[in-house]
Design a protein around this nucleic acid. Structure first.
Lengths: 216, 216
DNA sequence: GTCTATATTTTGATAGAC
DNA sequence: GTCTATCAAAATATAGAC
């Protein structure tokens, strides 16, 4: 039962959209309920009519976020393509999602930094679904002898880490475009994706790629 | 002139230490001045005697943080070792710093997610110093024909991204140790560092490592 | 340098009419 | 479902004595 909303704006959806932007920009504690309501052009009391409290609203968005990534990544497993191609597609899918949902990267980073303060079991299930999908690709590649065995979560870090940092650092790079060397301001995202793809694939090749250690 | 502190506790240092922990755990907005003062066993008014306000205290810590990383990374350039070895040492140095200063990773992630809200020019200088050091290693390798030319910042993302995520996600992995598949709880950090090293080096090899693209 | 007491503002949340 | 008015609890910051 959906009651009788959706006559034009669907307030609930507007609240969620405004909240996602606010949470991404300010974090959970920095986000202000008044600002969310204002941005959604909704009365603050209305917000509390739809959601029990700020935390419930936040969790709802987090859940959607990870479910979106999980679904995007899961869909490409059916292609039956080679492990290499599937892995590249996995990386592209994560990047696409970050592109089409610009608030995901900051929220993801923040939730990690927060020690997962607002995670519930449902959200964690979605998160680990992403890793499981990756694990499937990796074990397929290992079976075929294309990949050497590596812990899926480590590979996940190598993929998600750079992509999240790149996406989330856009405002900083833009602001300090000229005040920094190395033209950090003008890096095409395609170059980042391509580099993550080639780095990940190269790092998975069966022949150990001369790892060196060093302590100062 | 250092006045006459340091008789035993050095209040200022205690404030900074307590604040670093609080900022790492809660973020700028989540961090409470009362809690910082309490944790430092210092009166709250004392805190405002040493620092103009919460933001100034925060910036002071950020500055130290990036200066520490910049120094650690810079020192290993003098070794005159091979580009490969220097790069591996760079990665190890970043990891070591994250290990010895556990509040750095969350703070770093948060500042990125925050869009660099609290950065000032001095801090940005330290940050770009790290990238410059990496750029030096990369261009040395490129001169010798050991590395193919890649934008330093992209390589930086590939190094710092995984390491920060791994370090900062420790509490989450610990909490959901058994509720998740893939034994995410028990991954040795050495494995992560080794994988980042081999992935980075492999991704820099002159021969292009069959990059694949894909859009769903 | 250190503490007590307090001013001021902000903010999450609710009561209750329509 | 929607809005007005408002409460109560933080939380940043300061004044001013010692």
């Amino acid at each position: 039962m959906v009651s009788k909303r959706a006559i034009r704006g669907d307030t609930r959806a507007r609240i969620v959209a405004a909240a996602a932007e606010e949470f991404a920009r300010c974090g959970f504690d920095g986000a202000k309920v008044d600002r969310i309501a204002a941005r959604a052009a909704v009365n603050k009391a209305m917000l509390y009519y739809h959601f029990a409290n700020k935390a419930a609203l936040y969790r709802d968005i987090l859940r959607t976020m990870f479910a979106t990534v999980a679904a995007a990544v899961d869909s490409l497993r059916e292609s039956g393509a080679s492990p290499q191609a599937q892995l590249a597609a996995f990386i592209a899918a994560v990047n696409d999602t970050a592109l089409t949902h610009p608030h995901f990267p900051p929220m993801w980073l923040r939730e990690i930094a927060d020690g997962g303060r607002h995670l519930d079991d449902a959200i964690v299930r979605e998160m680990s679904s992403v890793v499981s999908t990756l694990a499937g690709i990796l074990s397929l590649g290992a079976q075929r002898g294309d990949f050497r065995p590596v812990h899926p979560f480590i590979v996940q870090l190598g993929i998600v880490g750079p992509l999240l940092l790149f996406a989330a650092s856009a405002p900083i790079r833009e602001r300090y475009r000229d005040r920094t060397p190395q033209q950090i301001g003008s890096i095409p995202r395609e170059a980042v994706v391509a580099q993550v793809q080639s780095m990940t694939l190269a790092g998975l090749r069966p022949e150990p790629a001369h790892p060196v250690r060093r302590r100062r």
